[in-house]
Design a protein around this nucleic acid. Structure first.
Lengths: 228, 228
DNA sequence: AAAATAGTGTCTGTTAGACAATATGCG
DNA sequence: CGCATATTGTCTAACAGACACTATTTT
């Protein structure tokens, strides 16, 4: 005994914020500084051991709330990592179930929650603890993939939004500009948007119509349980 | 104490075999009859507790070998299930990491390995133990999805194969007929096939060219580790 | 020659992308 | 009015699917 496998849950939390230099919206994520060995002092994904009385997703959501004071708009399981090579200085063996989440930073924003928590631009991360650099890379790949065929981008926006706002989210995630005309048609063809009668005014230009997402369509597959 | 979470690994194993009535190739999978409570007597996915000295995928492969005497041609993680509602009569809490695998039944075939192991047609399963019916449904969905954009179908075939053979695999997985002309062009366009100089003779018709898969292309993403 | 599958050609409808043109509120 | 973005229109290349047609081997 003593060689029991322990189970942890960690989460890659994405939010959209302006880049400090370019001021264009980019992906950020919060990391936690490790205060004990192994990898003491390095930045790591927020997470912790799975409590015996909570589900995997619930554990991820709780940890997210404790780390950032935010509520996830979207939460999906990413992968379970359990290789023997993970814990570099290990008597103990840990399997980590990783989730990824999208949040709206507006809500509690710069509260900067915990003292050992700091937000980083997702594409400019330091070397992380354990295999967390690899995990973040994979989560980014999944997000960039999924934004193209699901209504996941909604998680970064409010109840209603203009097509330009929605397009800005896609552009930030995909890191390339999109043709406004073609983007509009793709969204219309996809049939996930519902036009409202309201318009966004205030710019020095023609007001844009506000849309909302069709609530009758599930946001995405949160695993085999909810989605199809 | 005593409320520790235990970790198990189970695998959905797919093979192609003729349907007992129609004789057309369909998906089969092996199940194990439970010999103890809970769900005693019901059929369940092969699996077992994770040994502390083996990785998750290694555990799945070992269990697959012990259950079917077969070597997986393809193995990928499906999902980690850890809801509190899983174990129906539980003092204990179990999180299951599920893998899915493709095997070639020709190899050891009707050995029918263990005495409590039986193969079933994937679309004609009885009610399974725990949430395993849901899990199989999800695995089928993943397989049917993936066959359309990866070279996963290769796992059901030998080193070389005709386009008709490859098409038969796709048809069996997708459960619909495919146009031979269009299928050929799609495979050629995808660029994953390499034509050999050999032909398959023996039918009462024109011989068909044999192809092989481009080895330089990874089979698929076995998680973030191998694939991209 | 007849059968049967291998393999090619052609047509149509849909879609992604590039880019031109028009619409309209705001300063 | 003129700017800036919203919104619509048009054209082309690529692709999927339906289906006709030709090629080649076995019996």
């Amino acid at each position: 005994m003593g060689d029991q496998v322990s189970l942890a849950v960690s989460t890659v939390i994405f939010a959209l914020r302006p880049h400090p230099r370019t001021h264009r919206p980019v992906l950020w994520l919060p990391l936690v500084r490790r205060i004990r060995a192994p990898h003491q002092g390095r930045w790591a994904l927020p997470g912790g051991p799975l409590a015996s009385d909570e589900g995997l997703a619930a554990s991820a959501a709780r940890n997210l709330r404790e780390t950032t004071r935010l509520t996830p708009q979207y939460l999906e399981q990413l992968y379970a990592f359990g290789g023997l090579d993970r814990a570099s200085t290990a008597d103990e063996r840990t399997v980590s179930v990783i989730y990824w989440a999208l949040v709206r930073p507006e809500e509690a924003d710069a509260g900067e929650a915990g003292v050992n928590v700091q937000w980083f631009v997702a594409d400019e991360l330091p070397e992380l603890a354990f295999d967390h650099s690899l995990i973040v890379e994979y989560a980014l790949w999944r997000l960039r993939n999924k934004v193209e065929y699901s209504r996941i981008a909604a998680a970064f926006l409010g109840e209603t939004f203009t097509l330009a706002e929605l397009r800005a989210v896609h552009e930030a995630v995909l890191q390339r500009t999109l043709d406004p005309a073609n983007f509009r048609r793709q969204m219309e063809t996809a049939g996930r948007l519902v036009a409202t009668e309201a318009f966004r005014t205030g710019g020095r230009h023609r007001p844009a119509r506000l849309y909302r997402h069709d609530q009758s369509i599930h946001l995405a597959d949160n695993g085999p349980l909810t989605g199809l």
